[in-house]
Design a protein around this nucleic acid. Sequence first.
DNA 1: CGGCCTTTCCACCTTTCGGACGATGCGGCG
DNA 2: CGCCGCATCGTCCGAAAGGTGGAAAGGCCG
Lengths: 211, 211
Amino acid sequence: MIDVVLADDHPVVRAGLRAVVDGQPDMRVVHETGTAEDLLAWLGGGGRADVVLLDLRFGDAGPGRSRLGGAEATGTVVHRHATPVLVVTTYGTDADILAAVEAGATGYLLKDAPTEELARAIRSAAAGEVILGADVQRRLLGRMRSPGENLSARELEVLRLVAAGRSNDAIARELFVSVATVKSHLAHINTKLGTQSRTEAAAVARERGML
Amino acid sequence: MIDVVLADDHPVVRAGLRAVVDGQPDMRVVHETGTAEDLLAWLGGGGRADVVLLDLRFGDAGPGRSRLGGAEATGTVVHRHATPVLVVTTYGTDADILAAVEAGATGYLLKDAPTEELARAIRSAAAGEVILGADVQRRLLGRMRSPGENLSARELEVLRLVAAGRSNDAIARELFVSVATVKSHLAHINTKLGTQSRTEAAAVARERGML
DNA sequence: CGGCCTTTCCACCTTTCGGACGATGCGGCG
DNA sequence: CGCCGCATCGTCCGAAAGGTGGAAAGGCCG
């Protein structure tokens, strides 16, 4: 019997996952939670499971912004509690997937996956195998081919502000550097992304999920 | 007994909605579908329901792009089949909400709404009442207050290209007008949105879901 | 240690944008 | 009919952004 923990901030989705899991003869839901903190608290308090299903987007919409992201939670669960994490999320942007995989997620599925695929993935995850959905694999490959992610931390920071619509001057003031530096970073960004302008860089960044 | 039809392309979410509905003593699921075409075919083929729960985002992720959007489906169901539609979707951008409300949706809920709220909304919708989730109401108000959507069709077209990273020159060539015209539109856009630059306008446009 | 990358900055120059005018023609509306 | 909003073009000018070509300081790694 596979013990499954559900961690998703959408009650409806949680109910759906529960329905799928309960519909399988060889698995059951042992805990259900809507926040990452809850999940870690339960695991820290003696709870144990064979696999954790979690949504990468925790507290994304509400005004009480990100307290604990899904990626961090994944890392903690995998490393501290030695429990495989199967990430089940709605929108699989490249950045999300990469973050999850880097955090040590055992699998990554989109919510529009059929229920049989989900059940199969849970069994694989419980067995310790790494499984990525077909969609996800395609996206990962596409990402690898594209010349992405060479950006340094600073450059990414600049890019984020550019995408937010700030001017070079505003960015310079915000980062406590000179305008020349911002322009320099931006020049590198444009080179690395193969773009011609700040706006195009912002568009490409969004497309690739680097926001 | 309230007869409910589920229309959502995510099997997991569908299972969740079914679990919620089946958990209520006064309602039941009479049909379940993953595409808008299916939904319309079922209704057209003699099926009837007291309320339709549907996801605005149909066929959004896959490569086989949008065939029939949730908004169009909503309009058809409401007007042709005189059946109330309760939109239940993940991300409630202003544009989505507006589209749904304009299409005649009876209600609009985010998927992170608690199950009781969902059940209440279904009852209200079946009774013909218009109900918007608390989150949604807040967003709509915020939208109304903000000086948005005064943009003309042409301006919006320009804005879209700007957000895609095109230069004025490229936009001019793409729209078969002169650069002066593009600049003129952009000037109006910046005035209407209260922005200072193309990049900022693009950022604001994304934030407000005008993409 | 000597490259290599990152981050910071500079100067000079060209291109692009944005603001501030104005002008035309078109279509709707009272 | 005049007025207004929209779309289309124009000019002039200053500001912002981007390209080129540097340079210096610090970190990392073989």
